[in-house]
């Protein structure tokens, strides 16, 4: 028994090591000076420049216009991630609600149309989407960054499946209790969907946070740069004999990781709570 337990722990520790070691290395390396990193490569020891590096990354105004700071980029990424996740949830819940609870002509056809768009990645329509946004002069706005990506077949599909599993009697009870379509949605369906909302929020937030291609295309104004772009920007200074600011890139990467981790941690609790409570 003990031996098996020891072995289990070894396996777990190995897993933890594989998962966490690169993060630790990145964090430790970020506390060294750029020149140091250039000379010695990655390091596992504390470099002692934690405050300076992170302070610079967060507050130094950089870029061509000298207006963009790391904090600003984190802010932009947050807006993108949260706007993305929230918008997708609202849209796909409403779409699924219409598909499941209202019998309208061609409803099934519409569902399958939405569903087949799952097969098309963003990249397929990225140029036309850009053109539309450009014509609406929504480039370099948060609206332009977020809105074109909001329609979500995945979300609609998940919510559709979930709504279908909600017992019919609840709808009937609500109808007898005098709840109209709007009240039923707000008072019954939305609270019941907490788990699903949490799960989709995690997925969509991380998806939005990690967006690279679309923000790159949509924003030329540095004030709208996201963190993911920022990291790329730092490493772009490969000119002449300049040493790229490795330490800053690592610091930004570490910072870029934190919000998704926090979102997962926060929502995970709801997620599990919702799962164990889901007796309808």
């Amino acid at each position: 028994m003990t031996r098996i337990r020891l072995f289990d722990h070894l396996v777990l520790m190995l897993g933890v090591f594989i998962m966490v070691a690169p993060v630790v290395v990145a964090f430790m390396t970020s506390t060294h000076e750029a020149a140091d990193i250039h000379r010695n490569g990655l390091s596992l020891t504390w470099g002692g420049h934690f405050t300076e590096t992170y302070d610079t990354v967060l507050t130094r105004k950089g870029g061509f216009t000298g207006e963009i700071t790391g904090a600003r980029m984190i802010w932009n990424s947050l807006i993108l991630g949260i706007g993305f996740a929230a918008g997708k949830i609202v849209l796909s819940m409403l779409a699924a609600y219409a598909i499941v609870y209202f019998r309208f002509r061609l409803g099934t056809l519409f569902f399958w149309m939405i569903f087949t768009t799952l097969l098309l990645p963003l990249e397929v329509r990225i140029v036309p989407s850009y053109e539309v946004m450009n014509k609406l002069s929504l480039t370099n706005t948060y609206t332009g960054l977020i809105v074109p990506l909001l329609a979500s077949a995945t979300g609609t599909f998940f919510f559709r499946q979930f709504f279908k599993s909600v017992p019919e009697e609840l709808l009937e009870a609500a109808r007898i209790d005098g709840a109209g379509p709007f009240k039923f949605f707000i008072d019954v369906l939305v609270p019941l969907s907490r788990t699903m909302i949490a799960a989709i929020f995690i997925i969509m937030f991380v998806y939005g946070w990690n967006q690279y291609l679309w923000p790159t295309l949509m924003t030329t104004d540095e004030r709208f740069f996201t963190l993911v772009r920022g990291i790329k920007q730092i490493l772009l200074v490969w000119v002449g004999s300049n040493i790229p600011d490795y330490n800053e890139a690592f610091a930004l990467a570490i910072l870029a990781m934190l919000p998704p981790v926090m979102i997962v941690l926060i929502f995970q609790r709801w997620f599990i709570k919702g799962l164990t409570e889901s007796d309808k």
Partner: peptide, 16 residues
Amino acid sequence: ADRDIAMVFQNYALYP
């Protein structure tokens, strides 16, 4: 809702 009736369902249909 306007029939002035109340219904009790087999699976209770309570709002969980």
